[in-house]
Simulated assay, not measured.
Amino acid sequence: MLGRRTALAAWVVRALTLALLVLGATHPDWHQFAGKAMAARAVAYPLAMLALPVGWWLTRRGRTPYPAVQDLLLTLPFLVDTAGNALDLYDGITWFDDACHFLNWALLLGAVAITLPARLGGWARLGLTVGLGSTTALVWGSASTSRSCATAPSLATAYTDTLGDMTLGTLGSLLAGLVVLRLRAARRA
């Protein structure tokens, strides 16, 4: 029953995210959406949020239970980001962007850490979680910086902001890895 509720929660998160993406893509002139690549997000985010359910349906359906917790963890960061834009939190609260980089990477990499096979051992799973978290933070930061550098006003702060974002993403993935390591150790005890 908990798995069904969790899976339903992930679909509710998808629906809310999609509604906010449509709002942002259809109102790019609103100040909270201006320059935030909402049209690109409106394409990329739904595709990313469908990757797990479609992949499971095509390859695992009937053989393994639906990974509802991972699904929810993977969809929540997209809602956090789009809601942050819709509510103008990125521009209105100075620390919101930093909190998002930490929290969203913790959520995303929590899903990864849960999925990694137990036979790897706790420290190997932790290392893979942090390594993937750091790599994805680097890729995201590089893409974000190249977009930011195209606009002169953000050029002055783009480099230091990106380094901070990558550090926070890596720390979020470390937290996720440590939490999953601890939960698995507690389950074995």
Rank of each mutant, 00 (worst) to 15 (best):
Thr17Met: 06
Ala86Asp: 02
Leu89Tyr: 04
Ser134Asn: 14
Gly24Gln: 04
Ala51Ile: 07
Phe96Thr: 03
Gly172Ile: 08
Phe102Leu: 15
Leu2Pro: 02
Pro117Glu: 15
Cys100Asn: 15
Leu74Tyr: 02
His31Met: 04
Thr26His: 08
Thr145Met: 10
Pro153Phe: 01
Ala156Lys: 10
Gly131His: 04
Asp88Tyr: 09
Ala83Trp: 09
His27Tyr: 08
Ala37His: 15
Ala111Ile: 02
Pro77Ile: 10
Gly127Leu: 00
Leu126Gln: 05
Met166Gln: 15
Ser154Phe: 13
Gly141Tyr: 13
Leu116Met: 05
Asp91His: 13
Arg60Met: 11
Cys149Trp: 15
Ala39Thr: 10
Ser146Pro: 04
Gly92Thr: 05
Ala156Thr: 06
Asp97Cys: 08
Gly121Asn: 11
Leu128Asp: 08
Phe33Pro: 03
Met38Arg: 07
Pro117Met: 03
Ala7His: 12
Leu16Tyr: 05
Leu120Cys: 04
Thr162Val: 06
Leu74Cys: 00
Asp97Pro: 11
Leu120His: 06
Lys36Arg: 12
Leu171Ser: 12
Val69Asp: 12
Gly35Cys: 04
Ala137His: 00
Ala7Met: 10
Tyr66Pro: 03
Arg184His: 13
Leu155Thr: 06
Thr136Glu: 05
Leu107His: 00
Ser142Pro: 00
Pro65Phe: 01
Leu103Asp: 01
Val130Met: 02
Arg184Phe: 05
Thr145Gln: 14
Arg182Trp: 14
Thr17Arg: 04
Met166Glu: 13
Ala186Met: 09
Met166Ser: 07
Ala9Lys: 03
Leu138Arg: 04
Leu47Arg: 08
Leu2Tyr: 10
Arg61Ser: 15
Asp88Ala: 09
Leu171Thr: 15
Arg188Lys: 14
Ala124Arg: 13
Ser144Tyr: 11
Thr167Leu: 14
Asp88Trp: 11
Ser148Cys: 04
Arg125Trp: 04
Ser144Gly: 15
Ile93Val: 14
Leu132Met: 10
Leu103His: 03
Trp95His: 12
Trp123Arg: 08
Asp29Glu: 15
Trp57Arg: 13
Ala42Gly: 04
Thr157Ser: 14
Leu109Tyr: 12
Leu8Ile: 13
Gln70Arg: 03
Leu2Cys: 06
Val130Cys: 01
His31Ser: 09
Thr160Tyr: 13
Ala189Thr: 15
